[in-house]
Simulated scan of single mutants.
Amino acid sequence: MNAVCLAMMAAPALIAALTLPAVAQENPIMLSTDRDSYMLGDDVVVWGSVSTVLPGEQMQMKVLYRDDVIMVDQFEVAADGSFARRVSSGGPNWENSGSYIVRVWYGSDNISREFEYVAEDADAPTRQIEVADGRGGTFDLGYAIRGGTVDRMVVDYDNMAILVEMESDRGGDLLLDLPRQYINATDAGDDTEFIVLAGDQPLQYVERDAASDVRRIWVAFPPGTSEILVIGTAVVPEFGAVAVLLVAVGGAVAASRLRTRIFP
């Protein structure tokens, strides 16, 4: 068989090989964190594994905020290829809120993971927002959030609730200081649980530091949450029924006097 025939026979296989899609190689390092978002004072637990342990090789790790190096570390992986490190947040290098990156190098390979960090105390509200009561009034509500941003809050009278409109690419937590005079959940005078929803999905929450005027709750929300509805047993507008009645009566009296002047 001459060379021309061999080339013609090999051509289809060669063309097929050249046209096959490239298969991406799997990264030999697996990297994760225990959460997607953190607040001031939280420990960031970094963990993962390597597919092959390299004798005498140490893993290099950096935590970055934009182009700034927050911390560096170097350590050996376990015999089974696993690793875990605990990084304490706080201090002068952790003064900015935003997206942070943890990156590790092992041999010739590297991998990174992003997490959100809020450089504020997680145990108390860090911001205040003006809540529209839907009837021309407003009231202030304290909150803190990690893993997202709050756009606005409004009273939902139909559901006896407060609606939180927000943006979140990652999961996180929302702290709300709920003023009892505007929203509460009670049964026969005793505190009962709120119902908290993201769409149709019930959300878990923890209540902390309930006081005579405020109920403080922490709500954990999943990635992509755009609305959180906190449902109670009563919502009260800034202007109560008596005030609304007085305004209505005053308006009627003024209108009557105006008609009297125009049409004596």
Score class of each variant (00 low, 15 high):
D80K: 07
G56T: 08
S37H: 01
L31P: 03
L40D: 13
Y65W: 15
L18A: 12
R66G: 09
I29Q: 12
Q58H: 02
K62D: 07
A24N: 15
I70W: 00
Q60D: 02
L18S: 09
A79I: 08
D68T: 12
V69A: 10
A78E: 15
R85N: 12
Q74V: 08
W47V: 01
Y65A: 09
T19F: 02
A79L: 11
S82Q: 13
L64K: 09
V72S: 11
F83K: 02
D34S: 15
W47G: 06
D80Y: 00
A24P: 03
K62T: 09
T52M: 07
V23S: 15
L31E: 11
S82E: 03
L31I: 07
M39P: 00
A84F: 00
W47Q: 02
L20M: 10
D80P: 04
A78R: 13
M39N: 07
D34A: 15
M39W: 07
V45I: 12
M30V: 09
S32P: 02
L31M: 11
S82P: 05
A22W: 07
V77K: 04
R85T: 09
D80F: 02
V50M: 04
V50T: 01
V23C: 10
D43G: 04
E57L: 03
F75K: 11
M39A: 09
R85M: 11
G48Q: 04
V77C: 09
Q25R: 13
S32D: 07
L40C: 00
P55H: 00
S51P: 00
I29S: 08
T19C: 12
D68E: 14
V50F: 02
V46P: 03
M39R: 15
L31A: 09
G48V: 07
Y65M: 06
V72E: 12
V50P: 01
G48A: 06
D36K: 02
E26G: 13
V53N: 06
S49A: 14
G56W: 09
V69E: 15
P28F: 04
K62W: 12
Q25D: 10
Q58S: 08
V50I: 03
E26F: 03
I29G: 05
S37Y: 03
R35A: 15
D67S: 15
I70Q: 08
A22M: 04
V72K: 15
A22E: 14
M39H: 10
A24S: 15
R66Y: 00
V53Y: 01
I70H: 08
D73T: 03
P55E: 01
V46A: 01
L18H: 14
F83M: 11
Q74Y: 00
G41P: 04
M61I: 14
I70A: 10
D42K: 08
D73K: 01
A22P: 00
M59I: 02
D42T: 04
L64S: 05
M61G: 12
P21R: 13
D80S: 10
F75E: 00
W47H: 11
A79N: 11
S51E: 09
K62Y: 09
A24E: 08
F75C: 06
R85W: 06
T19Y: 07
L20G: 02
Q60P: 01
Q60V: 05
D67P: 02
S37Q: 10
D68A: 15
G81V: 09
G56S: 04
R35M: 13
W47S: 14
M30F: 13
M39I: 07
A84G: 08
R35F: 14
G81I: 10
V50C: 03
D42M: 05
Q60S: 13
D43I: 15
V72G: 03
Y65G: 04
